[in-house]
């Protein structure tokens, strides 16, 4: 992607309960190209911030919100970029009771 001079648009993280789904979106001449990867929740995931410096913000955000650790992330806020020390941890992960309520609504 870097060689083709694609611009990193964003990384989207979705919680699939048993794992996390990361979608890397790139822009190439106004066309979106998506790469989809599955990541395990408790294992560190390789960071792309060494290649795309711009990725450090979004990877830090995912680290804050989903608790997924990234390897070689620079600058690394240790999961406290958006959240402060006294805020709830990993707020975007799906809680079991919330899932139950969603299914009732169907």
């Amino acid at each position: 992607m870097w060689d083709k001079r694609c611009r990193l648009v964003t990384v989207t993280c979705v919680d699939l309960i048993d794992s996390l789904e990361l979608t890397y979106s790139f822009d190439h001449n106004l066309e979106l190209v998506h790469l989809r990867v599955k990541a395990e929740k408790d294992r560190p995931f390789p960071s792309i911030s060494g290649i795309y410096y711009a990725a450090f913000l979004v990877e830090n955000e995912i680290q804050d919100q989903f608790g997924l650790r990234f390897d070689n992330l620079h600058p690394d806020y240790q999961g406290f970029m958006l959240l402060s020390r006294d805020a709830p941890r990993t707020p975007m992960l799906r809680q079991v009771e919330e899932r139950g309520r969603n299914e009732d609504a169907v």
Binding site: T10, T12, C13, V14, N102, A105, V106
Partner: peptide
């Protein structure tokens, strides 16, 4: 996924 609620909503 067929809910009234969204599964994921992300804004860049």
């Amino acid at each position: 996924s067929r809910n009234k609620n969204l599964d994921r909503f992300r804004i860049r």
